[in-house]
Simulated assay, not measured.
Amino acid sequence: MTFSNSKWAAVQGRILPLILALLLSLSILPGCSGESGVESSSPEGSAGIEQPAAEEEVAAPEAAGDGEAALDVSQLPGYTGSPYVVIADNVPGLTEADAEGVTESYSPLDALGRCGVAMAVVSPETMPTEERGSIGMVKPSGWHTVRYDDLVDGKYLYNRCHLLGYQLTGENANEENLITGTRYMNVEGMLPFENDVAEYVERTGGSVLMRVTPVFVGDELVARGVQMEALSLGDGGQGVSFNVYCYNVQPGVSIDYATGESWRSDQQGAALSSSQEMDYVLNTSSKKFHLPGCSSVDRMAEKNKQAYTGTRDDLLSQGYDPCGNCNP
C-alpha cells in the first residue's frame, strides 16, 4: 500500500504518542521511575530519599572534628574546691607506641604567644643534675605581676608554670614550656603529679611518658587549666598512670582569662556567695548551669536552654554542675 506524505504524517501523529505512553508505563526510559517505586540508580534520584544521606555526610565531619578538638572545659565540672578533676576514669590517652622517637617535644608558640602541648619520656637521663636558674626574663601570654599577700601562699598570684616540671626534664627558661599559672594550680594542682612521676623514675630507674596540654578558650591569653597525662613504660602503666585536669584558679581571686587581669572575689558579682540569688542559664540535657554571658550558652540547643533565677546552692542540690568555662 502506498501512502502519501500527508497520510503518513497523520499515521505518525497517532502512533508515536501511543508508543511513548507504552514506554513510560514499562519504566524503560532513562532517568525515570515507574509506579513500582524502585529508586533510580542515578545520583540525581529522589530528593526525598537522598537528602537524609546528605545531612549525615555533613554531620559526620563535624562530629569527627569535635572528637579531635582540644579538651572542652565547658564539659568539665566547675571548680568546687578540689585543685583537679579526674578525666576518663584516670586513664591517659597515651600508649607505649606514642613514646617511639620521643625524648622531649614542645609546641611552637601560636600567633597569640601561647604554649601548646608538651611531651617527654621522663627518665633518669632527662632529670636535672644542677640547680635551677632564673626564669624571670620569660613573660608568658597573659602575664601580670600582682600580689595578694593575705590570699596567696607566696604572695604573688601568678607563677611561671612549667608544663613539664623542671625536676623531670631540666627545661628551665624555655618559653615553649612556661605558661601563666596561679600559685594554687602550680603547687596544689600540678606538683603532686610531677612528684609521683619523679619518685617512680628515681626509685625504679624506669621511664614515664608524660603529656601536658594547656587548655585555652577562644583567644584568651591565660589557660583555664592544664590536662596532665602520664604512663609508665615497660609495665603497662602499673607504676604510674593518670589523666587529670588541674584548674588554673586561685581561691579568693577572680581572673579575667582573656587578659590576665584579676580582682578579689568579693568585689565581683560572678563570685558572690553561693546562697545569693543570681540569673543563670541551665542546660537541661547536660545538667550544667552557666552565667548568661557564657560562650557555651550560644552553642546550646534551644530545646535544652532554660533561664533560672536562684542560688548556686539550689542548683547544686538539684543535680546541676557548674560550667567549667564560666565558673559560675
Rank of each mutant, 00 (worst) to 15 (best):
G48S: 11
V208E: 00
V297H: 10
G136I: 04
V212P: 01
P128R: 05
I135K: 02
E96K: 05
S296W: 04
P77R: 12
E302Q: 12
G189K: 01
L20T: 13
V117N: 00
N159W: 01
G181C: 01
E188A: 15
S207D: 08
P92F: 04
A223I: 05
W143H: 08
V117P: 00
D256V: 12
A63R: 13
L23C: 15
N195C: 09
D196A: 15
P251L: 09
G205R: 04
M300E: 11
Q51T: 13
V297T: 14
V11K: 03
T182A: 07
L18V: 14
V121F: 04
P30E: 10
A53P: 00
L20D: 14
G293L: 12
L178S: 02
G45W: 03
Y247C: 10
I28R: 10
P17V: 06
A47D: 07
G252M: 07
E100R: 09
G65T: 05
Q167K: 10
L178C: 03
R183P: 00
A97K: 11
V197M: 04
D72R: 13
Y79E: 11
L233T: 08
Y166N: 04
G113Q: 05
L71P: 00
G269S: 15
E131A: 14
R211W: 00
D279F: 10
W263A: 15
R114V: 10
A307T: 10
E194Y: 02
I179E: 00
D235V: 07
D321M: 15
G310Y: 05
G324K: 05
P140R: 09
G93P: 00
T284V: 08
H162N: 03
W263T: 12
Y106E: 01
G136D: 14
